[in-house]
Nucleic acid binder design. Sequence first.
DNA 1: GCCAACAAGATTGTCAACGATTTCGTTGCC
DNA 2: GGCAACGAAATCGTTGACAATCTTGTTGGC
Lengths: 216, 216
Amino acid sequence: MPKEARPGTGEQAKQHALEQLRQAISRGEMAPAQRLVENELAEQFGVTRASIRAALIELASEGLVERIRNRGSRVRVVSVEEAVAITECRMVLEGLCAAKAAVEADEEQLTELADLGTAMSKAVADGEPLTYSDLNHQLHARIREFSGQRVAVELLERLNAQLVRHRFQLALRPGRAQRSLGEHLAVIEAIRARDPQAAEAAVRAHLASVIDALSE
Amino acid sequence: MPKEARPGTGEQAKQHALEQLRQAISRGEMAPAQRLVENELAEQFGVTRASIRAALIELASEGLVERIRNRGSRVRVVSVEEAVAITECRMVLEGLCAAKAAVEADEEQLTELADLGTAMSKAVADGEPLTYSDLNHQLHARIREFSGQRVAVELLERLNAQLVRHRFQLALRPGRAQRSLGEHLAVIEAIRARDPQAAEAAVRAHLASVIDALSE
DNA sequence: GCCAACAAGATTGTCAACGATTTCGTTGCC
DNA sequence: GGCAACGAAATCGTTGACAATCTTGTTGGC
């Protein structure tokens, strides 16, 4: 009876359940508004209910699930209005990160950004929206990372986790990649030029365009 | 034996403990890095350890306490560097709120901001830093509120909760109120003029000055 | 036939006890 | 006298059971 996949990690039961649940939600394996019954989850993940409870409390605090007194937990559904509000926050926070990255990044990191840019251009030229979406995430993540702003990084990762469903929907929209590509290249250009103000402006322009696309 | 202060609210034990603990930390009643032993807290608040555990997990997710496996919980100490990083995030997020408030606020709310401005001027003129600090918080809170940006508001409140100790230290610094006052008045002016860009710039200038003061 | 009161089922909240891990003081050895 | 291994105390993590609450299906009355 395999209780855990990787015993070497020494994960506590709660951490194990937390990570499993978080990934399941982030991958969209849990339907939106699906009920999360503690007993079922406990059996499903092979841990006790207390561990599931702890994980759910933490996920609720991250905004991924919704808990109602004596009524249980659901995966939270984010409305379009809320997705816009979240993206507005991303806009200013990623703007901050880009500005700092333009100052803090070293030459090797700048090269990595340039490589990502060419890869993205290729993905668009080849008409591979899936690859492009993946590179998109990588680019945003790298810029965050290079900024060295850990507080902003944590906030952004938390916000991004709430957008999985909308993000999925947005990536498949035809013509979106072409528009997005130009904006991304502008961001990369500004950071490589070590111009914090231009970098912030470019990121904000990009996410403003995402907000437009979200609102349709 | 009074078990709870207000039975009318119908608070669950966990919610009760959570609120008590959060306020105790926010008011600085718990020393920084103080150990939070679950048994002691349980007895102190008249609830069981399970409730305390749930509350601690939530507070840890909010960044107010720090939990280490099998080692217990402490109230988290934020270094000066971290306080600066947090304030950088506040800078862009409050900038966003101010810009939205400049567009969204109604006339009554603008009047309230103006009144707060005159009250702050008076507090500085009378040399009452305590009153000024209080009005300061009110002003920031009102601007957040008027923006209607609930996501940003929640992020900001979470960030602010982590700064209690540094904020306390900053308010007492001589000459700080005078400088701060001018920046605050500029923010109010920009919002009343319904100029989102100017409002954002004013807020960012103000918090940039706070960052300078933090770094000394 | 429809609505309200009621009861059964399901689910979460709470509790006390057990097991695992870490910390710290003590003892024995070099 | 200093250091390592050992053991006791403290504390957290986990478990299973119980109580409180909500939901749902049923029954009785109008």
